[in-house]
Write a protein that binds this DNA or RNA. Sequence first.
RNA 1: GGCGAGGUAGCUCAGUUGGUAAGAGCGCAGGAUUCAUAACCCUGAGGUCAUGGGUUCAACUCCCAUCCUCGCUACCA
Length: 699
Amino acid sequence: MPEFKRYLVTAALPYANGPVHIGHLAGCYLPADIYVRYLRARKIPVQFICGTDEHGVPITIKALQENTSPQAIVDRYHQLIRDSFAAMDISFDIFSRTSKPIHHETAAAFFKKLYDEGYFEEKETEQFYDEEKQIFLADRYIVGTCPVCGYEKAYGDQCEKCGSSLSPDELINPRSALSDTIPVKRKTKHWYMPLQRFEPWLRQWILEQHREWKANVYGQCKSWLDHGLQSRAMTRDSHWGVKVPLPNAEGKVLYVWFDAPIGYISATRELLPDSWQQWWQQEDTRLIHFIGKDNIVFHCIIFPAMLKAHGGYILPDNVPANEFLNIEGQKVSTSRNWAIWVHEYIRDFPIEQRGQDVLRYVLCANMPETKDNDFTWKDFQDRNNNELVAILGNFVNRTLVLMHKLCKGKVPPFHEQLKDERDEQLYVHLQQAKQKIEQNLEQFHFRDALMEVMNVAREGNKYLQDKAPWLLARDEAAQQANQQLIDNTIFMCLQLTANLAIFLNPFLPATARKICYLLKVVDRMLEWENAGSLKLLSVGYSLRAPELLFRKIEDAEIEKQIQKLQSGGQQLQPKISVSSQPQKEASSSAKPTINFEDFDKIDLRVGTIIAAEKVQKADKLLQLTVDLGNEQRTIVSGIAQHYAPEQIIGQQVVVVANLAPRKLKGITSQGMILMAEDQQGKLHFIAPSNIISPGGKVS
RNA sequence: GGCGAGGUAGCUCAGUUGGUAAGAGCGCAGGAUUCAUAACCCUGAGGUCAUGGGUUCAACUCCCAUCCUCGCUACCA
């Protein structure tokens, strides 16, 4: 292991087509920030790099939907995201954007170098082309009916309704998202990176040399490597993005996943024009990527392969990816608006009351480090009221109150001759806590680290309880007699409070500063080397009047949040609240008008299911035998996750009888069953309201 | 279906390379106390460590099978 002299910490570049939610924070920005603040407190040179990822097709789609330009979209979200992070005290050294010229230049040069050294394969493929707009359509530009759930605005790579990943060929009634015309296939050329060439090296580098990576990360990488890597297109047909720096590459841009991680490099160049090489090209720099688990393949496989191919760059030493944070038992869904948006949270729990620290605390205490975790508002309330208020805030408050009552508002002296075992025990605990916090942070165990910080406050409460200085000062005579004992107790509690500020600083920076304010010390006290000391506050120094660090959160506030979440979650057509203008409701005319002849081409028949069984090795498919009166058809239908085979025998259905046969999992499907989808995405049969003889015509 | 990660007290989660009677926080019950935001402090109840086999002197920890959850992937006309 090389000795590291400096740290380069990156947090995944958020995509500038929507605001950030608390799952993003818990997934990578909060752990990254805690880690960076800890490093800074230890005076270890560190740069914390982030910015918005502003290219890619979804942004252009969104621009089309809102009838504006991609630039307007990314400008809006860049600002919103940046402000959200600022409110949460995420302390980036730079928060840049991939639309900046320096990034285009860096990414293009990177691509050119790989091209010049022959790392790319050129391939021609057939892609959908919009003749009206004269442009190739990336998968995302093709919109059509999802073959799985019937959602009419599925994209060519994925249906956002049911989550199925698709290819454009699978869409029913594919249309161009640009012009709504029917696209045609046309040949196009792209540059592919043969990742399989890096496979032996990646196996060695990850599987042999980085066994210390988190189990979820290591396992995911191994899975990818064992599956075998393939060439991957690193360019796209688009006008929005980094232009491919080659002749005859009009209308080609870098694949967003090629250019985005390079954004880390260009942001560093922007921040440190004269010394960025030191951070990216010297082996004694430790590069750490904080990401969510959806980004593992890009940060552990593709980007390292790119860096390796380019040469001259260091590789990530660790990629501590977190899992996902669910909300109230359900997965976050931006399209269903099942999410807690940071900019909305901060409106209800403003930074004046250090609402950001409450959220930081709860998210860290419940951080999805090893598996998906659940965020509930009840838990948020409990942790605030029972931990921040009752344990931490209470300890600091009672310490300051006692100090004012029993020590005249000044830091009392410590009378060494009266030091007892209990004092020593507290001191030992403080030293151990420091060590444990350090160890946990260095191993990316943030929740354990935070727990240890809270244990310091817990220990303080116990100590105070054992010493019970209020008993020693029952009356004036008693207080006079016991003043030295009282002094010692308060002295210890005050020094412990100062230590708490140091420990809390990486996790709850605003609270740490607030404690400094109450103790009338400068922020420099927060430097980590001061932790464990009992000389942080000078004897005789007068401190400020106590102020509560945290307030209780009432049931009504929690109710309000839950209602807000659920009302948002039930909206069929979700609206993200940054936009003041409501999106246009378009679902009533999602498909172009057709005439009767078009409709008449479809032969719809009533049928009765007379047999059903699960298709082998397919999760979603049922093989049905449908009686159409004069014949029986075998139809394969993607409904296995909605109906058990035995429960649908005898079910009447509507069948598209003249659909061209198609082989699925080796079975020829002779038709298609019509299904209706409800708000939860569950499929229901379309059937006549009375029993009709099989074969009956539908029109 | 393939692969990966998980299934540990009511809840949220820890458990390093197998070895004293299985842990924490919250919640719950009882007690003590009043400096403190009815906060704090003490004590206690609670788990066949998903299930069934196996290896071992010894397994939550290793191996095999099964079930459940999440993710990636295939299937969706």
